[in-house]
Design a protein around this nucleic acid. Structure first.
Lengths: 195, 195
DNA sequence: GTGCTTTCTTAACATACATCAATGCACAGC
DNA sequence: GCTGTGCATTGATGTATGTTAAGAAAGCAC
């Protein structure tokens, strides 16, 4: 299977050549149209996804029907609802496609087996977990300590490409504010920084 | 070394008896007085801590000198500034003791070696990472989607013991609001729920 | 193209939460 | 005992953000 995933395992995860077929050939693929649901609240998440193409989002819907975006996943990212995947509990979150998307689909068993076969994979998997924690900790720190403006500036600095690909109201949802507030924040910034 | 840590490794982590001396005897201990700093901003965090006794907090201080509490760690918890520990970058956070505290001190090398020696330790270590992610994801979801009142109710339900041990202004800091606001939230609740 | 939907913006108004300042209380040190 | 210090509460007021509603611009279906 020559694919983005294959190349990713080889070049980024640094999986040894002899192990590659054992990993890359054991997974399946799935294509999603824009708007398609990949995981729904209440379901137990059985899979992890590697993004070959497109854009996914992980989000919740509260009692008032409002969406709150936990995470975006563009190309070359891994995405899952880890809580549900690892602990086997029903997910409190949704995953859907913001663009036409192609993902590689695998499960926790694959991760465990791959870690047995390839030490490089194991190392990389732990790196992903640590990196995930790092990002979440930073985000929590901003959410409890920074204004909406600072959080927005941090977001566009960290994800300049995403900022262009997703509608603003989703950025607002990610930041924990309303679209109207984000619009005002942006106006404030453009008045400070005329260009 | 007969200790809380030893017992924890045996009973919770399920480390096999023959591996226990290889792990528990290889670590050092440290005692801290209430208020003592264990990690300061700018330092590279070299250690992970297992709480034998007492209470630690992980927090940041922003440009205005305000503290924002990322995490509390009571007995039997593991605590570290993982970002700094794993990636070797200077920490943006502080750790200090809220009570007289005794911790077991070890480093990333210990974790890696212990994972080699004991599969049970490796499994438990991953469990801790996954659990950490689970809690942070839930917290982010509340921070972007729930009112201060809901976040407070969730906190006291999740950490009833902590609520009694720490001053209220620290709970407020953890929730991302001011002490005054938390006081008002509590008044509102007591008027709704007279008991 | 025409119509329909979504997105973004703006304004007026409402609310949650922050700020500033004062008070009372509990507790530690002397 | 007194005194200082830290903490919690309260009130008056300020500000950031939410709500509701409207309209303009951009995208999509047909």
């Amino acid at each position: 299977m020559e694919s983005t995933f294959y190349n990713y395992l080889k070049k980024k995860v640094l999986v040894k050549s002899e192990h590659l077929p054992l990993l890359a050939d054991e997974v399946s693929k799935r294509a999603l149209s824009k708007g398609e649901l990949l995981l729904s609240e209440g379901q137990v998440c059985k899979n992890m996804f590697f993004m070959e193409k497109g854009l996914l989002r992980l989000y919740s819907i509260d009692e008032d029907g409002r969406e709150h975006i936990i995470q975006f996943a563009p190309e070359n990212w891994f995405l899952s609802e880890r809580d549900s995947l690892y602990f086997g509990t029903p997910s409190g979150f949704f995953i859907d496609a913001l663009e036409d998307t192609e993902v590689v689909v695998f499960d926790q068993q694959f991760v465990d087996r791959a870690s047995e076969i390839s030490p490089e994979y194991r190392t990389y998997n732990e790196y992903i977990l640590q990196n995930h924690i790092r990002h979440m900790q930073k985000r929590i720190n901003l959410l409890i300590g920074a204004t909406a403006e600072k959080r927005y500036l941090d977001f566009i600095k960290l994800y300049p490409d995403l900022t262009m690909r997703i509608p603003q109201w989703m950025v607002a949802s990610y930041l924990g504010i309303t679209p109207e507030s984000l619009s005002r924040v942006r106006r404030g910034l453009s008045q400070k920084n005329p260009e």
